[in-house]
Simulated assay, not measured.
Amino acid sequence: MEQVQALIKELRIINKMIYLNREFQNKNIVTIKSEMILRNILASIIKSSNYIINNQKNILQNMISIRFIFEGLITLILLIQDEKYVFKLYYDLLSSERKNIEYRKNQLEQEIKVLENSAGKFSKNIEVTSMINLEEIPRQEEIDLEFFREIIRDNFFIHTSYNDLYKNGLNFQIYCLKEEGIPFYDKELKKLDDEEVIFFQDLKSHAKLFKNKSKEEIQKEFKKTRINWREKAKQANLENEYDYIYGFSSSLSHFSGYSLLTSSTYDPLEEEMILRRLEIYLENIKNNINYYIEKYQLLPYSILYITNEEKDN
């Protein structure tokens, strides 16, 4: 456990060094994209590692976390093997972000339809309320609020809550989603369009590998190299490790007979295995990051020899 914590500390130092070096001048496109990718990888791995060491006896969540860290190790190995891989990763990041925004916008549009359909039913309640005695108004208000609860309970919403309907009412909530929500997502998609344009311009201008290729040719090349995690593990010479980690984590995470029997049962040997794999993966992750940083000269000084003073801070 002490070695794991020491490795996490070293990864934090590496991440800090990359961050402090972010304003260093005369960087090329490889350096700029690599810094961003490495910092995101490091932050995710550190977070997942801390989860494992702070939540022992949670075999299901820890296996999911160790699988995530294992994928981080594979990614770093592929970064070293293929100098174009950092650009593919960055393009995948943009593409994934686009899919997420498009999904959320589509979900918002579906929510608006549901609320608009509900507004027609709700208007009948308002007509009834106008004809009842003042003494019955509190009762009618409770009926209205129950109607809001039913809308939230019976539908899938990520942009509207019961409190939104209670505060805004149906019509104003619909107005807010249309006038604020839709433009927000359109603006985010436009930002991604601009980022993508700049990315491909930079590739053609500053990366020799893509200098004579069109945007469409580059996109086709990136998409062609998209492979599943087993193929990635095979390329990284970690195929056997993949088979075990994925087989075990899948048997726990899916609602199967094995997971029903074991996912909530603490097995000290399984926990020991997870901590051992964590130590091995973190050591390899640190070494691969150090190698990658030196290979592409991402820092003006070597981080392979971290001083005791830096470790203690």
Results as ranks from 00 to 15, higher is better:
Ala43Tyr: 13
Thr225Ser: 15
Glu270Trp: 10
Ser253Leu: 15
Glu102Asp: 05
Ser253Phe: 10
Asn58Val: 10
Leu108Ser: 02
Leu38Glu: 01
Gln25Ala: 14
Asn62Val: 12
Gln5Phe: 14
Glu179Ile: 01
Leu73Lys: 15
Ile227Gly: 09
Ser259Pro: 03
Asp243Tyr: 04
Glu196Phe: 04
Asn40Ile: 07
Lys99Cys: 07
Ser118Phe: 10
Gln140Lys: 12
Asp186Glu: 14
Asn228Gln: 07
Lys234Thr: 14
Ser250Glu: 11
Ser96His: 08
Leu299Met: 05
Ser96Cys: 06
Gln56Leu: 13
Leu282Pro: 09
Asn237Val: 07
Leu78Gly: 06
Ser214Cys: 00
Lys232Arg: 13
Lys286Trp: 11
Leu78Ile: 09
Gly120Pro: 02
Glu141Phe: 14
Ile53Met: 12
His206Asp: 07
Met1Asp: 13
Arg153Val: 08
Phe184His: 12
Phe172Leu: 11
Tyr19Ala: 14
Ser264Tyr: 15
Tyr296Gln: 02
Pro300His: 01
Ala207Gly: 01
Leu7Arg: 07
Leu261Arg: 09
Leu42Gln: 00
Gln3Val: 09
Tyr266Glu: 12
Lys88Trp: 06
Lys121Ala: 08
Tyr258Glu: 01
Ser96Tyr: 11
Pro300Met: 02
Glu283Val: 08
Leu73Asp: 14
Leu238Ser: 00
Leu209Trp: 12
Asn228Pro: 04
Ser49Cys: 05
Lys178Tyr: 02
Phe147Glu: 00
His254Asn: 05
Ile101Leu: 15
Leu115His: 04
Glu309Lys: 15
Lys191Tyr: 12
Leu108His: 01
Glu102Cys: 02
Arg230Phe: 11
Ile14Tyr: 02
Leu304Lys: 15
Leu134Asp: 07
Phe248Val: 12
Leu203His: 00
Asn212Lys: 09
Leu60Tyr: 00
Trp229Met: 15
Glu241Ile: 04
Phe200Arg: 00
Lys88Tyr: 13
Glu102Gly: 01
Ile198Tyr: 08
Lys84Asn: 10
His254Gly: 05
Arg139Leu: 13
Tyr246Thr: 12
Asp267Tyr: 06
Tyr266Arg: 05
Ile227Ser: 12
Leu299Gly: 02
Lys167Cys: 09
Ile59Asp: 03
Asn171Lys: 13
Leu78Asp: 08
Thr265Lys: 15
Gln219Asp: 08
Met17Tyr: 13
Glu150Ala: 14
Glu179His: 06
Ile274Lys: 00
Glu102Ser: 05
Glu102Ile: 03
Gln110Thr: 11
Tyr292Leu: 10
Arg153Leu: 14
Ser48Asn: 09
Lys311Arg: 15
Gln61Lys: 11
Asp267Cys: 08
Asn290Ile: 11
Leu298Glu: 00
Leu7Cys: 06
Leu278Asp: 06
His206Thr: 02
Lys187Leu: 14
Leu78Trp: 01
Asn100Ala: 14
Lys234Val: 09
Thr262Asn: 08
Leu11His: 05
Thr129Phe: 13
Asn58Trp: 12
Glu179Trp: 07
Glu188Lys: 13
